[in-house]
């Protein structure tokens, strides 16, 4: 193909304020897909809990990172402050309204806490970095927020397992949310499916 020889400026769409429908729906789509995959994987959760015997309760600390990977992914795709919080809340609605999760409406609270945690990670970089480092930091801040919340909700304080839980929880945030989230984000970008979303546009700018 030949290069365009136009030198005049192309038509620019006026930038709207707030999230566009396409961006919100991309975030909802992530929530829907992860909600569906979690639904398939819940069996895995139960199997791990049984395999761990009386310490099966710790399974949640091991797997927790996987439950909040949707927030950094949404921030990566949409690149706007607030996307992580919106994604978590949308994902929780998918879980307890659409898929009928027995955990119920309290998921809204977990989602809000986790969403704020993810936002903090990216906010530390002023929403300018979307690389592995940002994912790791976000995974860690989310894990910290989520740990504080879960400690209150499940009464973890005062258990002898407290330190073990903390270590597992933070590691899970780093690995499942940080590393895995970043790998998914990178792979998605390479498929071209994000081309018309802010992540794809940013990548096109980098190439130019």
């Amino acid at each position: 193909m030949t290069q365009t020889n136009r030198t005049d400026q192309p038509v620019r769409a006026p930038q709207g304020r707030g999230f566009g429908l396409k961006e919100i729906l991309a975030v909802v789509t992530l929530g829907v897909v992860f909600g569906f995959l979690y639904y398939l994987l819940v069996q895995g959760w139960n199997a791990l809990a049984v395999a761990m015997g009386p310490f099966g309760d710790l399974a949640q600390n091991v797997l927790i990172g996987g439950w909040f990977v949707v927030a950094p992914l949404a921030l990566f795709v949409v690149r706007r402050p607030g996307a992580g919080l919106v994604a978590e809340i949308m994902a929780s609605i998918v879980e307890f309204v659409f898929l009928g999760s027995p955990v119920g409406p309290i998921l809204l609270l977990s989602a809000t806490v986790q969403g704020l945690g993810s936002e903090l990670g990216f906010a530390l970089f002023r929403y300018r970095r979307y690389d592995l480092v940002a994912f790791l930091v976000s995974g860690l801040t989310t894990a910290v927020f989520s740990f504080i919340y879960s400690t209150i909700r499940f009464g973890w304080l005062g258990q002898t397992l407290f330190e073990t839980r903390l270590a597992l929880h933070l590691t899970s945030g780093l690995v499942l949310c940080g590393v895995l989230g970043w790998l998914i984000a990178r792979a998605l970008l390479r498929t071209g499916v994000l081309r018309d979303l802010p992540a794809g546009r940013a990548a096109a700018l980098d190439r130019a």
Binding site: L21, K22, L25, A26, V28, T29, L30, V32, V33, F36, L37, I184, A187, L188, T191, V193, L194, D196, L197
Partner: peptide, 26 residues
Amino acid sequence: SAFGLMVVALRRGQQLAEALEARGLG
């Protein structure tokens, strides 16, 4: 397979967004 599903769903989600706006949503 999970990744494949994500790609397919993201593509469909964008098509649905375009269809909604073409019907005047907004």
